[in-house]
Amino acid sequence: MNWFFADAPRERLAAVRILIGTWAFVYLAARSVEFFKVASLGAPHFEPVGVTRILGGPLPVSVAMITLGASLVLLVLFVLGVGYRVVGPLAAVGVLWSTTYRTSWGMVFHTDNLLVLHMIALAFAPAAHAFALAKPPTRPARAGYGWALKLLVALTAATYVIAGIAKLRLGGLGWLDGEVLRNHIALDNLRKAVLGDWLAPLATLFLAHPGAFTIFSVMSLALELGAPIALVGGKPARLWAVGAWSFHLGVVLLMNIWFVYPLTGVAFAALLPVERPVGRIVSRLRSILRT
């Protein structure tokens, strides 16, 4: 229990709020054209999942775009730390709704799940006690700030562990021989070839020399099932984060699938002393705004 509540600087949690909130804003804004396209597909293509199951059919495109716009506005306030007790949960709901609506058109994506979980965790954490426009509280959060950072790391680890367990449940220990991974990579690139997308740059090279897939399979599973080591903190956690980042880079090179949240490193921000660089940027912005 003491381990979970071991304190951490309030600035670190606030910096993580800024990084994840900014990332979510940029991501949703960059996806707005794509969001508009899928929101325009019409009822035959609408397959609600998660929270969008409350809908009887797709929203009018204008309403869908308004919800996306509202989510973006909330994210700006989230990053600024304004009215956080209300804005935090609303921004998390906005990201949950927007990403769920985008994935409710026949294909459940797996690239945004961790972002949503992190937003929910941050929404109910004292993440606006520093680096915020609102006046900082006179006394620190009673439960401290470390628990929220540990929760973010635990959520990250949990998603990787679930993915590893799914491989063992579906593929058994045979998953480790490399054939399952090789076949998935071949199939994924075939889909891209016939559906007009870019092939992954190293796919054909490795498919022609399949021996390496055994190594890739063992490393992938070790990384996923070993994710809880990130909770230890320090060097083991940072090494795991580097491994996870490399794993996602490998997925890009072999499958051209971009898990952008971990690839940018933001998914691992809670493991790092991010308050220093973020603090410098915040100070710089404040001095610019004063002049």
């Binding site: 999942v49 990403t99 994935t103 945004d112 993915a163 799914a166 998935h184 199939l187």
Partner: peptide, 27 residues
């Protein structure tokens, strides 16, 4: 995770790349 429609969002079984698949694809 084998069951069709068992996957959800954002609470996922993360079944991607887990199942044994042949290399033949009808698409």
């Amino acid at each position: 995770p084998k069951a069709r429609k068992s996957d959800g969002y954002p609470l996922s079984t993360f079944p991607m790349f887990a199942e044994k698949r042949a290399t033949k694809l009808t698409i």
